[in-house]
Each structure stands twice: as structure tokens, then as C-alpha cells.
Amino acid sequence: MKVSYFPGCTLKTKAKELDIYARRSAEALGIEMCEIENWQCCGGVFVSAKDEIASKLSSVRALIAARDSGTPLVTVCSACHNVIKQTNAAMRTDEDFAKKVNLYMSQDKNPSEPYHGETAVYHYLELLRDTVGFDKIKEAVRNPLTGKKIAAYYGCMLLRPNKVMRFDDPENPTLMENFIRALGAEPVIYPQRNECCGGYVVLDDAELAKKKSLSVSEGAKDHGAEMIVTACPLCKYNLVKSGSEIPVIYFTELLAEALGVKEDKNAEQK
């Protein structure tokens, strides 16, 4: 299967592991990730105000590129995913917004057909669940993570707003737990798995971010987890910097390890 891939700026810099292991694992699972050409930063957070237009154009450009190549758009970063999926929904449901955006886009050098939210947008985890299937992943596992107790951290951006994201049950998600099971490990359920780590507020009020993040990592540890997995570079940063006593790693790294493709020293990206 072929998909358009929007890596995002953080995956090209501070979160290279999130990207590299996603690519390697995809290859092992028979998914061809074609990076969108000249993609631009999504901006990290969706601005819900209807009159914010220009800051959403980069997402629309990526969505159009995917549509024009006839493939779904896949993201690995939770934040990119949230921004692009919310922008796509706005293009589909807010006529006035779509009209203004399409007017902007018609000024691009080689304008495409007007866009109205046609592209299917998936997070990599959704692709694993819905397209590959956890049964198939289970079969592909070469190094089962037997006995490892792992806490999934969803945070907010994968799940909310649920009306748009439709990722999983926002109050009792199971996707990442089933993912952990497919790799042979044992998921740890704890109350803060879908609560916020503080996010960007770390720049404005570091104490607040610290308090929120610590409650997440302490919750996971108190419920017996040996490590936390996340899909978001900022979640990881906040959890680690606030002093998590257990390691925090990207879900793609865990996947690559279980699939036996983690130490592939000859891989092009390394």
C-alpha cells in the first residue's frame, strides 16, 4: 500500500527517531511512505478561530498534494495529525472558510483544483490498526517484548476534539494498548493517559507544564509501568524534563524493536 507522508519539522530535527523507526517499520510491514514534496510546517497547533486563514494554508497544501497523488495522507506526530485533520474537517464543513482558502490557493504558481476536504487523513497508529491489522503485526514480530509493562500516553491531540479526530473512544481508548499487546508486551492502564501534559505552556509557565507532566509519569509508574510510549515529541519532552522516573520512548521505536528492524545500521536514514 502506498501513502503520502507528512513528517513535520520536529521529526526532521529533535524527533528523528520517531521518523526513522516509522519508515523502517512501514517498510517491514509493506507500506510505502512517500514523503510529500516541499511540505511546510503545520504550525504545531490548530487555531480554532474561523478567521485564521493564512496559518492553515500549509496543511491544505499537503492535503491537496495527497489528493492529487491519489493516496491517503499519513502523519506520525500527534500534533501534525491534529492540525491537518482539523484543517481538513474545516475545509469539508465550513464553506466560507474553504472559499477563502481556495482563493488563496488559486494564487499559487501551479494551482490545483479547489479543495473541499476529500483526502483521507490517518495517523500511523490508525494505519496499523485499520489497514495492516494488529493480527498481522503480531505475526511480523520477531522480538516479542514479553513481560514488559508499558503505559501508553495518548495525551490530548490524538483524541480530541473527538467530533473531528474519531481516533478512538476519547475516554477509554484501546488502540495503543492493543498495539502494545500485539508486540507481546503488557499494557498498563492509568488515569492520566488521556490528560494533558501541559504542551506549549512549557514556554510560558514551565511550572504548570511540570506539574501536569509529573502527574502523568507518576500515574503510569504507580500503576506498575516500566516505560511510557508516546507519539508526540512535545509530550516526550515535557515528561522527560519534568523528571519522569521511567523512560519515555516513541511508539515507533518500540515497533521497530519488536519487528527486528531497529538496529539496521545500513538503513539510509541513519
Binding site: C9, T10, C41, C77, A79, L203, D204, L234
Partner: peptide
Amino acid sequence: EDMPQQALVSAMRKY
């Protein structure tokens, strides 16, 4: 050193 770009662009967009 470790601050992800995502934090900076998000903060700029929000603040």
C-alpha cells in the same frame, strides 16, 4: 537543547 520545534511554533501561534 532538547526543546522540540513543535513547542516553539505552537507557542508563537498561541501567544
